[in-house]
Design a protein around this nucleic acid. Structure first.
Length: 416
RNA sequence: GCGGGUGUAGCUCAGUAGGUUAGAGCGCCAGAUUGUGAUUCUGGAUGCCGCCGGUUCAAAUCCGGUCACUCGCCCCA
């Protein structure tokens, strides 16, 4: 038993969990298509270079979290640790710059070699939404609207806060970064060990620190809004005005940052306090610099990803897709086996969900039917066959009546 | 990569001044009911007490290691 465990940080999805996943995906798909997004499914692995080049050599994802291996042809392959790079690659591979704007959605597994904990797995699943080729803030607004609608349709909107920030255009962002480095370098002695490393690699991340000492310093650190140039201010105002017009609740969080260089302007996270340390349920931002960094044509982009496992913990039970209750066909006696199978088949062809056990006497089969939460049992024995009928039992009420074989499917559909 | 907690039946868990045959509930199987489920009653099987080693006449119990799960840090969905 001990050896037949799933690989650390992976989980089997079955039973109620599978239903939760499907429920959430259906709702996601429904919302995305309402906004006229198209499905795209890219491979779950890409050349390692695709992720390395876009995520940067200093990011944690690239330096220690990728599942990378050499395939039999000697290619360096990586299981995707995020969606955007693969979709951007597909955009370029398929020459889609001809057809912008592209509005995509996708769903599937993501892989990161991390220490598992609540809401954090090595294989997990994300729903992803992207708009490619739109520089206007209207795309930012729309993408936020999809997210808000999605969470509302899941019935969890009220437990979730939208945190919004602007990282500015490259110029604003670079000025701010310099100011931050200058400020924190002046207080090096008071920074936590982790933040000293961040100062080297990714200074904006210091703003995220949970260390008390760091937080004291952060209070007086330069604020990003003071470094916005006019075009950044205009852009961000458009986004905020749009979000307000659509009545989407939000708070500005100017400590919300993205470490990677290709991010700019809008950055956002939808968070909850109901999941322990991993409170982010959906997050994204604008990445106008990404395509060029990959060697493609300069193309704007904005999008987000939502964590399936985290959402699955939040949704209410009554939201789950109802399972179809089966009708159970039960032969009585050996001679009824084949005729019962024929009856079951006819009902299935007629579109009814039917199950028939493979063995057992009537008592066993009825017990099994009950465990399956069957709605009806259809019993077929010698007596019924002689008269061209079957005994149809309502398992909720315990009542039963004979129904002519030719009318059973209509009878069951009428009651179902 | 770093720190805390926990590993006993399919599931939820009892079980320590170390002691003989390791327990309960739920679930599962069988029978009462060989043409009728749920309820009820009767009976049954649950198991290398995570794994390896040590202490001891004797270890589920004490010690060391290891693995897994879990919570947090880091990072992220």
């Amino acid at each position: 038993m001990a050896r037949l465990q799933p690989v650390r940080g992976t989980h089997d999805i079955l039973g109620e969990k599978a239903i939760r996943f499907r429920t959430i995906f259906e709702i996601f798909k429904n919302v995305a298509e309402r906004y006229s997004h198209q499905e795209i499914d890219t491979p779950i692995f890409e050349f390692t270079e695709t992720f390395k080049r876009t995520l940067g050599d200093t990011s944690d994802v690239v330096t220690k979290e990728m599942y990378t291996f050499e395939d039999r042809g000697g290619e360096q392959i990586t299981l995707r640790p995020e969606y955007t790079a693969g979709i951007a690659r597909a955009f370029i591979s398929n020459g889609l710059q001809q057809s912008t704007p592209c509005k995509f959605y996708s769903f599937g597994p993501i892989f990161r070699y991390e220490r598992p904990q609540k809401g954090r797995m090595r294989q997990f699943h994300q729903m992803d939404l992207e708009i490619l080729g739109v520089e206007e803030p209207q795309a930012d607004i729309e993408v936020l609207a999809v997210a808000a609608d999605f969470l509302n349709d899941l019935g969890i909107g009220k437990h979730i806060t939208l945190e919004l920030n602007s990282l500015g255009d490259p110029e604003s962002r670079s000025d701010y970064r310099d100011a931050l480095v200058h400020y924190f370098t002046g207080h090096k002695g008071k920074l936590s060990e982790d933040s000293l490393k961040r100062l080297e690699k990714n200074p904006m991340r210091i703003l995220d620190s949970k260390d008390d000492g760091d937080r004291e310093l952060i209070k007086d650190a330069p604020r990003i809004a003071d470094f916005y140039n006019q075009s950044t201010k205009d852009f961000f105002k458009m986004v905020i005005d749009g979000v307000e017009a659509l009545d989407i609740k939000y708070v500005i969080n100017d400590r919300l940052v993205r470490g990677l260089d290709y991010y700019c302007h809008t950055a956002f996270e939808f968070t909850t306090d109901q999941l322990g340390a991993q409170g982010t349920v959906l997050a994204g931002g604008r990445y106008d610099g990404l395509m060029e960094m990959m060697g493609g044509p300069k193309t704007a982009g904005i999008g987000w990803a939502a964590g399936m496992e985290r959402l699955a913990e939040l949704i209410a039970d009554d939201l789950l897709i109802k399972q179809n209750r089966p009708v159970v066909v039960t032969p009585v006696g050996a001679e009824a086996q084949i005729p019962a199978m024929k009856l079951a088949h006819d009902l299935r062809v007629a579109g009814i969900v039917v199950d028939m056990a493979y063995k057992g006497n009537v008592g066993k089969r009825m017990k099994r039917a009950n465990k399956q939460n069957a709605s009806f049992a259809v019993l077929l024995g010698e007596e019924e066959m002689a008269r061209g009928v079957a005994m149809v039992k309502n398992l909720d009420q315990g009542s039963q009546e004979e129904v002519s074989l030719s009318q059973i499917s209509d009878y069951l559909k009428g009651k179902g």
